[in-house]
Amino acid sequence: MKLRMMVVEDDRDTLEILGVVLQRKYVDMEIRTANNGRKGVDLFRQESFDIVITDVNMPEMDGIAMVQALRAIKPDVQLIFITADTGRATVEHSVGTGFHLDHYIAKPVDYKDLFTAIEKSLEAVNACRG
């Protein structure tokens, strides 16, 4: 079964670029995108994802609110935050315990950091699946 990954980002360009690059990099994974938190939650409900990469500041529903909703649906979902404005402490506080520091990536995003975070998340997913 293919691993599934969702990218939630309100900036159209970023979302498009991330979608294309991650798909080409992780050919074996199912990559989906959503441009705000609410759509992300909806998509998550429909399809369920192993890894969610999300922006924090977004219209309709921000990243924090969204991941709280996603955790409610799937507690072991791997989360990677990409944020420009919100401090790491705020994200950690909002998301709660168990959130790994490596899963916090500041904009502008360096692919190496992102890929590292994805790799770690994949390891975690695989470990769970055992």
Partner: peptide, 26 residues
Amino acid sequence: AHQWRQPLNALGLMVQQPPLFYELGQ
């Protein structure tokens, strides 16, 4: 800053893309 953060981020992603895609042979 706010207006630029997103396109700057996008631009950063774009700048990093060629070597990444080159490695992927694409």
